[in-house]
């Protein structure tokens, strides 16, 4: 039972992270389209931001681990 609840929680965390990373990716694309010469810097910033959001999502996964 705990496992199932943990799985649902992990799913929700992934949903949030997916939305967040999607937004970052979309904005980065916009920014690159607007300023192709700054694409390197934008990519770095994008990856960092995505990793930070992913980190938050992984907190969810860790809470899932707590139930195991």
């Amino acid at each position: 039972m705990t496992g199932t609840v943990a799985a649902i929680g992990a799913g929700l965390a992934v949903l949030g992270a997916g939305l967040g990373i999607g937004r970052i990716g979309g904005s980065a694309m916009d920014a690159i389209a607007r300023q192709p010469e700054a694409s390197g810097k934008i990519q770095t910033a994008m990856i960092i931001a995505a990793a930070l959001i992913e980190g938050v999502a992984l907190f969810g996964v860790v809470v899932g681990f707590l139930g195991l």
Binding site: G55, L58, F59, V61, V62, F65
Partner: peptide, 13 residues
């Protein structure tokens, strides 16, 4: 703490 969890969770996941 976030550093710890991030690396741990990323690699484990």
């Amino acid at each position: 703490f976030a550093l710890m969890i991030r690396l741990f969770a990323n690699m484990t996941a």
